[in-house]
Each structure stands twice: as C-alpha cells, then as structure tokens.
Computed example of a mutant assay.
Amino acid sequence: MRNVGRGFRTVAAVSALAFTLSAGQALAADATQASAGKLSNGTDVRAVTLTAANGVSATILTYGATLWKLMAPDRDGKVADVLLAYGDVAGFEKKPNYWGATIGRYGNRIAGGKFTLDGKTYQLPQNDHGQSLHGGGKGFDVQNWKVESVKSGKVATAVFSLVSPDGDSGYPGTIKTKVTYSLDESGNLQIVFDATTDKPTVLNMTNHAIFNMAGEGSERDAMTNVLTIPASRYTPVDHKLIPTGELRAVAGSPFDFTKGKAVSIGLRDGKDQQIVFGRGFDHNFALDKGQTNTPELSARLEDPVSGRVLEVLSTEPGVQFYSGNFLDGTFIGKEGHLYRMGDGIALEPQKFPDAPNHADFPSTRVDPGKPYRHVMIYRVSTSPR
C-alpha cells in the first residue's frame, strides 16, 4: 500500500508562504526560483515555484519548460502533488518521456514523419513505429529553456524562451517561442505558448502533464478519476495510432465522456478495435467548442474521494486523452514510486494529430507575420461532499 499522506502539507502552511510584502502591500501570489540540479554536461536547471493564496502551487523546470509539480488541496485542506514525474533532473535526462513537458514543435503524431508544405516535402526523425511523435529528434521537451522573467504579484508569472533554428529536427523556419506560466490567487494556472517564424512551417504546442487527482503515489490510481470531455466526436486511428481522417461519433461507444464517467469504464473493451489499437485510450477528441479566441472547457477530471477537481481549458479544437497505457512498471518517479499502467492520465489540448496530412483537419500552418498562440488553463478546485 502506498502512503497516501506522504508529502501532504496543510493549506495554512502553504498559504503562509504565498504572501510576501512589496512596498508595504501583501502580494496574493509568490514566485521564487532556485537550482534544481545539473544536467550531465554541467548545465544548471532552474526550478521556478509559483504559489497562490489558496494552497495551490506549481513548480516549473527550465528543462523542457516542464510543469514538474502541481500541489492541490483536497476538501479538508490537505495538499498533494497531482502530477506524475521524475523526482530529479537526472531522471528527465536519462529516460525522457514527456511528463509535464512543453511539447514542440509538433504535439502528437505525424504519419511516417513526413508532411508537405507549399509543394515541398519535409522528413522528420521517426520513432520505432516509423512515426514522428511530439516533434521528433531533439524536441522542445529536452531543451533547457531560458528564464526570461519571474514575478510575484496578484498573479505570479514565469516566462521561458527558446529558439529553434531553421531545419531543427527537419522542420522549416526559425522558431522563436515563449511559454508563460501564470498562477492567480484562486489557483488558476494559465500556460500561454507564443511563437513566431521566419518561414512557413507547422506548429502544434501543448503541455504533457500526467495527472492523478487522488495524488501522485496514491493508493487510488487515476482510473478511479471521473472524466468529462465535451466532445461528441473523436478521431479514430489505425494500428499505428495515426488518424484515419474520420470524425466518428462517441455516442454508444467507450469514447463517450460527455456526461462524465470513471476513466476505467470501457478501458478494457476488447470488442472495440480502437481500444485494442490504443491499448486503452490514446485518442484525440474533436471538441464541440472548436477553435476559440479565449480558453473554454476541454476536459474535467475529478477524484470523488478527495474532491480534487481539475478543469482543462484551451483555445485549441482538440484534446488528446491518454490513459497511461505505456506506464509499464519500469518508470520510477517521485519519492521512489513505481509507475504502472493507469497510474496517471494525460489531457493534452492541441490541434489534431497528423493535421498537416489531412486537409479537412484544423490547419497547423504558421506564417511569417502571423504569430502562433495557444492559451490553456489548469483550473484546480474542490467539489462539495
């Protein structure tokens, strides 16, 4: 049995840390930074912690601009980290697997690692399944980003920047990108991805946090979490997890999360070929809201026992739901916890996978003079008993 109480802190203790004085006035959210350790080449990795007044805090590593920790209180004020991740920088470097990282240039899969833009075909690095996944090659998740600014205030912010040169991992154009994490006094963690290019290219950035709202290392795995996705359609895939191009109705299938249900329901439905292909859920949902100018609800995740609730809001038209199918007991995470299938899930707001090869999917094209922006929010709260 895992120790559910390990690492808990009281709201009072956390809240006391959330207030600092500036010019005689109390600030509602605090931002601090410190060294998190060094990479094998001696490069220092920084950790920036944003702390809100209500006990929510987020710690971001410069390595991968990675959301490393997200502390959330339950109904009784007990705080737990709800993110699966490695316990130190060395883990991220030795066995990269995207946990909590900023994903780019292209989140999700591109078939054969190939796409054509303005008549020219570009070849990207391929994984062992012959696809490009999450950017391929040396993606944004394994880069040590620069800290541009860290500020306390009513909203605590941390800004990270990275330049990806023309031809990086096969993609055209020099990309200058910034990721801004902002935590307000109510515990809303906003992540803004901004980028510009000097050549036409494709871009699809997101965050790849792995959640269990019962708490990382809890005796209740993430399959007991209740998930809602406001999407009446999803994009079915082939045996290589590449979208077929169809938009299929979720009604009457294991993919119907419109009314909310435990993640485990339908997870082992071997009669559904899509569940067999994904080894569970590993699919993009076409959100009913579509592309929006401001973030709107993309998913809701709740642990009914503790009452911790996560709402994921985004401006993007899709969200990838991944049920932790490849967590196989070989990953050792925080506090020595062994991560197994179902211990955490990902909810990745995005444009659709393999969109550059599907004219009917929302476009991921970005041109000079037309900046890219994706705004998403992790909203942490509790439900009533």
Score class of each variant (00 low, 15 high):
residue 233 R to I: 07
residue 156 A to H: 04
residue 378 Y to K: 08
residue 7 G to T: 14
residue 9 R to M: 15
residue 221 D to G: 06
residue 154 K to E: 15
residue 222 A to N: 09
residue 119 G to E: 13
residue 32 T to P: 04
residue 100 G to V: 03
residue 361 F to R: 00
residue 285 F to A: 05
residue 225 N to S: 10
residue 31 A to F: 13
residue 96 P to T: 06
residue 237 V to R: 00
residue 259 K to V: 08
residue 118 D to R: 09
residue 57 S to N: 15
residue 110 I to D: 00
residue 346 A to F: 00
residue 4 V to N: 12
residue 178 K to R: 07
residue 250 V to H: 08
residue 347 L to D: 00
residue 102 T to E: 03
residue 169 S to F: 07
residue 6 R to L: 13
residue 379 R to A: 12
residue 192 V to G: 03
residue 239 H to G: 12
residue 194 D to V: 01
residue 336 G to F: 00
residue 165 P to W: 06
residue 191 I to F: 03
residue 295 P to F: 04
residue 267 L to D: 03
residue 3 N to Q: 14
residue 384 P to F: 07
residue 206 T to I: 01
residue 247 L to N: 07
residue 72 A to G: 12
residue 346 A to C: 13
residue 149 S to N: 11
residue 371 P to K: 06
residue 135 G to K: 10
residue 10 T to G: 09
residue 231 A to G: 04
residue 211 F to M: 03
residue 221 D to P: 10
residue 48 V to K: 09
residue 211 F to L: 08
residue 241 L to W: 05
residue 175 I to D: 02
residue 128 D to I: 12
residue 30 D to T: 13
residue 228 T to C: 12
residue 275 I to V: 10
residue 24 G to Y: 01
residue 40 S to W: 10
residue 214 A to L: 08
residue 326 F to D: 10
residue 96 P to I: 08
residue 103 I to G: 04
residue 175 I to W: 01
residue 354 D to V: 02
residue 138 K to R: 15
residue 220 R to N: 06
residue 47 A to G: 13
residue 316 E to G: 01
